[in-house]
């Protein structure tokens, strides 16, 4: 028996398709955002849609947050812009 050998001459309709199911997740060192305590794979309280619309950012200190959360936090800091987790200067990791 042979399985599903595609003859290049055959048109695409006959091409075998596999629809696989998977879930996406952020590659991060934690499950939840340290600011809003929501799951990284969910979204920040301001957002409706996760993923592209509510991305994560990493700081140079390697902590990461929802972008909306950290920006809000940084805006609220008058003097120094520190990471809310480790109190080091916050710099976006490139």
């Amino acid at each position: 028996m042979k399985m599903a050998v595609i003859d290049p001459a055959e048109n695409e309709v006959n091409k075998n398709i596999w629809i696989a199911v998977g879930t996406w997740r952020w590659v991060a060192n934690d499950d939840n955002c340290g600011i809003c305590r929501m799951a990284f794979d969910g979204c920040c309280p301001e957002c409706k849609l996760p993923g592209d619309d509510c991305p994560l950012v990493w700081g140079e200190c390697s902590h990461c947050f929802h972008i909306h959360c950290i920006v809000k936090w940084l805006n609220s800091q008058q003097v120094h812009q520190l990471c809310p987790m480790c109190r080091q200067d916050w710099k976006f990791k490139e």
């Binding site: 595609i6 075998n16 398709i17 629809i19 696989a20 998977g22 799951a39 794979d41 996760p50």
Partner: peptide, 16 residues
């Protein structure tokens, strides 16, 4: 060229 084309259904686990 692949024998099988993989298409995916990528889900946001938190919401399902």
């Amino acid at each position: 060229e692949r024998t099988v084309d993989v298409n995916a259904m990528i889900l946001s686990a938190q919401f399902w």
